[in-house]
């Protein structure tokens, strides 16, 4: 196995250009599980945690190498809360937002926040740079538009981020759990509301009809909240698996979205 540990972004991009099929190693929290249990034996590994450009967090740009521990202490309450629910302190000190994007699990905890903001994912190769909206980048469960030779540089958030934001996650124990349902709700002063849910579809789900309906409600009545929850439940597309049932996830999606909305009203 060849290992490259670049110390600058240029060096990292040169490495990915030279080894377009290389395995990119960030925090290792997903990759090393594959090494241990799926016999992943990469020929070339590029470890990127020493790249300072990826550690940057400058206003609306969050570098791919920013760990969950840093996100936990950051300015965005919903993202901080999402980060806090990722694994244990041991996981959060290693795992990164770039890794969460690259793994593209439907349960990725930072993804609902990024999806609710329609954040862009910045990708670079030695030859080019491009920005894809989150739903252009994540193309399916554990599938992305990342091309060989490209690195995830970070996520770019829009300028307008409301203070009223909330995230919550359902699991069957009180910490250290993969989401059965996760949800992020953002609400702007003009009523515009964005909702994103994890673990209830092949990728993060944006229940557009629910968003549209509730965005016009400046002071939603109880009936409007019920309708909002009903629409959220109708728009998710969960499955049955060993963690939960589709029926429960559908139900809980509406309940959780409604509760979070009430918290930010």
């Amino acid at each position: 196995m060849e290992t490259l540990l670049p110390r600058h972004l240029d060096e990292a991009l040169a490495a990915t250009a030279a080894h377009p099929e290389a395995t990119i190693l960030a925090g290792g929290t997903d990759l090393m599980v594959a090494v241990a249990y799926q016999a992943l034996r990469p020929a070339v590994v590029i470890g990127i945690r020493r790249v300072p450009e990826l550690q940057e967090w400058d206003g609306r740009f969050i570098g791919a190498g920013v760990t969950y521990s840093r996100l936990e202490r950051g300015p965005f309450a919903a993202l901080a809360q999402a980060a806090r629910t990722v694994g244990s302190p041991q996981i959060r000190s290693a795992g990164t937002i770039g890794g969460n994007l690259g793994t593209a699990s439907p349960a990725g905890d930072s993804l609902p926040f990024l999806a609710a903001l329609d954040a862009e994912v910045l990708l670079r190769s030695q030859a080019a740079e491009r920005a894809l909206r989150w739903d252009e980048f994540i193309t399916g469960p554990k599938r992305t538009a990342l091309q060989p030779g490209e690195l995830i540089v970070g996520a770019r958030l829009p300028e307008a981020i409301p203070d009223r934001q909330a995230f919550a996650k359902i699991g069957t124990r009180t910490a250290m759990v993969i989401a059965i349902v996760s949800c992020c709700v953002l609400r702007w002063d003009d009523g515009t509301t964005r909702v994103a849910l994890g673990s209830v579809g092949p990728t993060t789900v944006r229940p557009r009809a629910a968003e549209t309906m509730i965005s016009t409600e400046r002071r939603p009545s109880s009936a409007a909240l019920d309708e909002f929850a009903r629409l959220v439940s109708a728009e998710v597309s969960p499955i049955n698996d060993h963690r939960s049932t589709a029926a429960y996830r559908r139900h809980a999606s509406g309940v959780l979205a409604r509760r979070l909305l009430e918290r930010v009203l």
Binding site: V33, V35, S93, A94
Partner: peptide, 29 residues
């Protein structure tokens, strides 16, 4: 567990608490 779920392999890596099962050894150079 060798997948970061039990903490029994916890070490400090440059002062950070991590699961050593999730650190690729070559990346700890």
């Amino acid at each position: 567990c060798e997948q970061g779920e039990c903490g029994s392999c916890s070490v400090l890596l440059d002062g950070r608490l991590v699961c050593s099962c999730l650190v690729m050894a070559v990346d700890a150079d």
